[in-house]
Design a protein around this nucleic acid. Structure first.
Lengths: 177, 177
DNA sequence: GCTGATCGTCAGCGTAGCTGATAATCAGCT
DNA sequence: AGCTGATTATCAGCTACGCTGACGATCAGC
């Protein structure tokens, strides 16, 4: 087998390619709602209750500075409101507006449809299988996961690698050896 | 079910998160070789024969300008050489050097190990299943795929990485976190 | 020898996320 | 009360990435 074939059929490679394809579709489907993927993610957690930006960072895995931009965007569109916490005036409590709730619901429906569409080539059984395996894998790699299928409480390596975002490059990209 | 749970357990979401985690690990594993994901991907195709940069673009899905940077890097490290084609002096034929071949082999091995490690939380059967499903899905979505979507279980779980390049054929390219 | 297309290259733009610094605020200690 | 250190949100700046658009060199067709 040639090296190029080795690469092209690797599970990791497939994972990346599919993730890109999927995210492109998701972003596309979210355009009408004036949302981007990360916005929707945050918005979904906002609905859980009165959370500070910090809390949202922890749950979504976004950086604190990125969160500022996301909330800015959501607020500009009128989907959420910032309110200083009475008990701790450092915190901004993020609450969803009526508009936000509506949009969230519609966007989630659109997401679901897009996802079903994307997974359609697989049979129903395979879809369930795939979801189960991804859940297991994710749970094993992310200690504080929020997936419904938490398999084993024993946390695996997790290897100190950042949870979210592609943070390649530590310092100069050339590891001078 | 709360919205946040809907999101967090969505197959698409898991796909994205896992792809990020995986690519971070791959990049990390490639550091000692002075390679990045995209470099390895290109290098693997270079080995297939005498290809121009344009050819490599088509096969790897990278942009032509990005390819320049990749080849620059590979050449600086002595893994490939540029040679003007005698028959068409516009083209740069990219050939792999002895060093490049060695590094490629070692890097592929490292990739395989990293991938095995990453997939370890799943049982062997699940790993095969996962690979098969991803292959099917990818084949269904990418017309000119290079994968052998024929799920031959005995044929190595494989290896590799790729900072996936998105074809310009698809919609807005915005890899969501 | 023109004309138009192709290949590689470079400069510039936009985006994403991160680091580091800052002001406001809180909690603990004396 | 006052001082000290931690925490929250914010902003400016940096880095990395890939893309668009322009350019010189080269080729193919006429």
């Amino acid at each position: 087998m040639r090296s190029s074939e080795t690469i092209a059929s690797a599970t990791g490679y497939l994972l990346l390619k599919l993730a890109n394809l999927a995210s492109a579709r998701m972003e596309e489907a979210l355009l009408p709602f004036r949302l981007r993927g990360r916005d929707l993610r945050v918005l979904a957690f906002v609905e859980d209750g009165e959370l500070s930006q910090r809390d949202l960072c922890e749950r979504t895995g976004l950086d604190r500075t990125t969160m500022v931009a996301v909330i800015d965007e959501l607020e500009r569109n009128g989907y959420v409101r910032r309110e200083r916490s009475p008990s701790d005036r450092r915190k901004q409590l993020i609450t969803v507006t009526a508009d936000g709730r509506t949009i969230l619901s519609e966007a989630l429906t659109a997401m679901r449809r897009t996802e079903d569409d994307f997974l359609a080539p697989l049979g129903e059984d395979d879809q369930r299988q795939l979801h189960r395996q991804l859940s297991l894998l994710y749970a094993a790699h992310d200690p504080r996961c929020h997936t419904d299928e938490t398999p084993d409480p024993e946390l695996l390596p997790s290897s100190g690698v950042g949870v979210a975002g592609t943070r390649h490059s530590e310092g100069p990209t050339r590891p001078t050896s």
